[in-house]
Structure formats: C-alpha cells, structure tokens
Design a protein around this nucleic acid. Sequence first.
DNA 1: TTTGGTGCAAACTCTTTGCAGGGTC
DNA 2: GACCCTGCAAAGAGTTTGCACCAAA
Lengths: 140, 140
Amino acid sequence: MANKSIIKTLIDNNLKVTPQRIAILEVIRTIENHPSAEKISEYLRLTHPNISLGTIYKTLDTFFKKGIIHKIHNDNDFLRYDAITKKHHHLYSSESERIEDYVDEKLNEIIEKYFEIIVIPGFTIEDIKLQIIGKFTDKK
Amino acid sequence: MANKSIIKTLIDNNLKVTPQRIAILEVIRTIENHPSAEKISEYLRLTHPNISLGTIYKTLDTFFKKGIIHKIHNDNDFLRYDAITKKHHHLYSSESERIEDYVDEKLNEIIEKYFEIIVIPGFTIEDIKLQIIGKFTDKK
DNA sequence: TTTGGTGCAAACTCTTTGCAGGGTC
DNA sequence: GACCCTGCAAAGAGTTTGCACCAAA
C-alpha cells in the first residue's frame, strides 16, 4: 500500500494523520508532477470533493515548513510544489508551464568539487540549484 | 552623463524616450540591486513623486519583453528585476531578502563543457542559471 | 478530553487592465 | 498629427487569515 510511506512521513513529522493530508501528499508524490495549489485542488475534487483551497494552502505550508516538500518558481508563474526525494535540479520549458526534475549525481559532484576550491568572498554556500531552461523535444 | 547609455538603450529598442522610463531604468541599473516594483516606486517617489505603480509595472514588462531586464524569483517572494549585463547567476540569502549577482566565467565554461558531452534525453538546453543559496558573511 | 486540523469566507498582496488625457517623435 | 505612453482606479490572480466546528490522538 502506497499510503504506508505517506502515513509514516506524517507521523515522523509529528503531524496528525488526516485524510486531507494523505490525499494532498499523495497527489504531490505520485500523481501530478510539480503541481500548483490549484492543480492539486483540481485532482482532489474527484476523490475528496470538499477539501477547500484554504486547507490545501495551509497543508502545503505545513509540509514546506517540515521540509516534506519544496516550493519551486518559474519566471512568470505562481508557486508550485515538489516532493523531496533527493537533490535534483529542474528543467523549465521556455515554451510552456512544464517543469521536470533533473537528477545528475555526476554534475552535483563536479559543482561540489568546484566550490571546494573556489570560494565566494563573503558567502557560505548551503545549497545549489540549477534552473535549466530549454525546449522539450518529446511530446507530453 | 550616465543617461546617455540609458537613452541609447531605449532608442535601440524602438521605445519612446520618456522621463519615467529613464528614471526606472536608472534605478535598476545604477541605484538599487535587484529591486522589486515596490522598491523602485519607493526610490522614484523622491525624484519623480508621481510615477504611478501601474506605470512601473507596465514599463518593467516592456523592458522585460525587449530583453532589457530580467525577472528573478526568490522562493517566498514577489518578482524582482535585474539589469542584464552578461551571463550571471544569483546568490540568495537563506536568512533575508538579499540577492546578489554572481559572475563566474570559469564555472560557466565547466558547465557548458559538461553539457556538450552529457545530453539530457528529450531536452534541448537554451540557458542555465544557478541559484546559490547560503549565508552572506559580510554586513550589508 | 485535549490538541490541532478543517472549511468557509473575507481580506490581503502583488500584478494587470481599461481608458482618458498627455507627451514624444 | 499620429501614435504611444502615463496615471489613476478598478479588477484579477494567487495566497493568507480568522474563527467556529470537528477529528485525531
């Protein structure tokens, strides 16, 4: 049952296990790729017709504060959300709203190594994210 | 006169040269670092007390469409603007709203070289921007 | 039973739009 | 003079908040 890991996540973060939270996290983790709050609401309308948008926003904020999900931005766009799995970057379409994850251990390693040698004066790096902008050549 | 290059920019882009546009571009280019529309308005209130926020938004949009400025995002924040000079990345403070440019030709080269060899399936890269998150250790 | 979550609606913030008047070329 | 730009105010989109009710532990 896929719910097991969702429930575990909630418990591990001292959050009460509610149907709403399970449903929201499920959408982000398994169904929709980088959804906006609106998009999540759209999905939930089918299975949980009366989860309010307000609850979705509050829940997303709760998840974000606990580090269960990330927020991501596009350059001409609202907020979107992202289930954290492991360090990854994002591919942004220059033509549409599409955003995909991009995982590349080797690239991470190269960048990490680079910033072990190169120091940015007056700045301590905590994290680096690449925004890779371009065109998707497959259909979706 | 610093205005010369601003006026040239406007003319080169087939934009009418108005005091508002000069003032707005001047703020972005020379005075304030990555301002928001609100911040720009704040500055202009001193020298041009009756430039309306609406005009600022329209002007920024015009500049953006002409490629004169960039838009940038922070993770929990509104839009901010950036005078384009050359390819650069951004340092984001994890503690405040501060954003600084980060220019690093060598890093660009390394990344470019990397993606000459590594191809992302189904995706053609047009541009890559790094979001470097961390702490500023100098005061400002 | 206690604590915290949900739903709803109203409020807020940032941004966009429409239109009449004014400035630039 | 033609065209485009500006200012103002109203509208819009996405998000947040307050509060009474309800569910989870």
